[in-house]
Design a protein around this nucleic acid. Structure first.
Lengths: 230, 230
DNA sequence: CAGTGGTCTAGACCACCAG
DNA sequence: TGGTGGTCTAGACCACTGA
């Protein structure tokens, strides 16, 4: 038990920065000084400051000191959940419909992304995700058979491809990007919006070690927003 | 110097989880056990595990233990920088053009967001951000005069409104959302794209204590992508 | 009640930076 | 070369969980 917890101290210091007491670019007191001011150990101060550095509010350098970040780069965090969870979190009922499931030579952009030989066969899946039986998102996915051979025979009616993969094929890393796209005819149809509508598209590629597992595009229904607080 | 640093340990444990050695939902060994296995102190293990918990890979409960996260919620981080920085980071030259600067009664959606009296006057700014003299983004911003009275006389030719605000009016918190929008006639014109194009829109509202400072919409030129790695 | 994670402390050593 | 942050350790106490 101490007078100051690192959580509390972190918020206190954050306020001192945000209020303008320590201005962008300026040095703030050393860990030792802060420890003395708040009557706590340097370890506690270090903990608090490291958290603020991770959040992008300050920049620290051994030997130099700690400065308030100049460029004001904020780090926004978004939780990326499985679609089913995203829907169930709103209280609605989740269901999905596989509208395409075939194994065939992958097109160029896929062999590229998954580092496959040209024309290598892969599993192509298209799924509509529904919230209370109404369209929520359209998923277009390619799966590398070398990394997930079982996918061809997986029962994807009760469980979506995404969840099957998450369960069966762990992955070590991935890339995500969000873009704004126009819903073309087929996608608009599946999402029951008018063609020409602007929809958010999430593209994700994941791999395990040196093996590329899957690449997918998820088109959210019109009105989807990626939200967070700073 | 110890055999195991918390950074190293964190990555080692991450691999053991990702490789499937500890499956989602399962308990992993206690801090003490891990400390013994790796011949380091519990403090070090705690540090590593807390980082993984923050990343959403594991869930920890006092008294209960540590489990691998079931729902596989990933936390994606995006750096939100000032537009000028974003552009300069690519090596291009930044410039901007203020296309509208007026003080007038704010429309309903603005008084709502900024918690102003209906029809309260506010500063309305529209700016085009350019990269190497070509349009990059269009900004539509409203500023609360009570929170930033100086904005009406600020010299916004050399420095954008955003930067002026960042410098002069610190803020304590904010909300950000990203949506896909259709570029209407005026926006398409400023961005030099065809009307009907899909563009990414970032909407941001910030406040200081209980005072709402500003709300803005930033429309990025077609092709903008929000990227990150997992 | 025993076991687990959350946290603080004091002391130590090191890597790095500036003048 | 002195000051600063980065990190590890050992020990301690507490809060919470589940049997």
């Amino acid at each position: 038990m101490s007078a100051v917890s690192h959580t509390r101290l972190r918020e206190t210091i954050r306020e001192r920065i945000i209020s303008g007491e320590w201005t962008p670019g300026a040095l703030i007191p050393t860990e030792e000084d802060i420890a003395e001011e708040y009557k706590c150990s340097r370890t506690t101060v270090n903990r608090a400051l490291q958290a603020l550095a991770e959040a992008g509010l300050i920049e620290r350098k051994r030997g130099a000191g700690t400065r308030v970040t100049l460029g004001l780069v904020k780090r926004a965090q978004f939780d990326i959940a499985i679609v089913r969870r995203e829907i169930e979190a709103t209280g609605a009922a989740y269901s999905h419909r596989v509208v395409l499931n075939e194994t065939r030579p992958a097109p160029g952009y896929v062999t590229n992304r998954l580092h496959l030989r040209p024309k290598r066969k892969a599993v192509h899946l298209q799924t509509v995700h529904l919230t209370d039986r109404r369209p929520y998102a359209f998923e277009d996915r390619w799966v590398n058979l070398d990394a997930a051979p079982g996918i061809a025979d997986a029962p994807l009616d009760n469980i979506s491809a995404n969840e099957w993969l998450v369960r069966e094929v762990p992955y070590s890393s991935g890339e995500i990007s969000f873009t704004a796209e126009i819903a073309d005819g087929r996608i608009a149809e599946y999402l029951e919006t008018s063609p020409g509508a602007a929809v958010m598209c999430m593209e994700r590629t994941t791999w395990l070690g040196d093996k590329f597992v899957t690449t997918m595009k998820l088109f959210y229904k019109q009105g989807y927003a990626l939200r967070t607080t700073l």
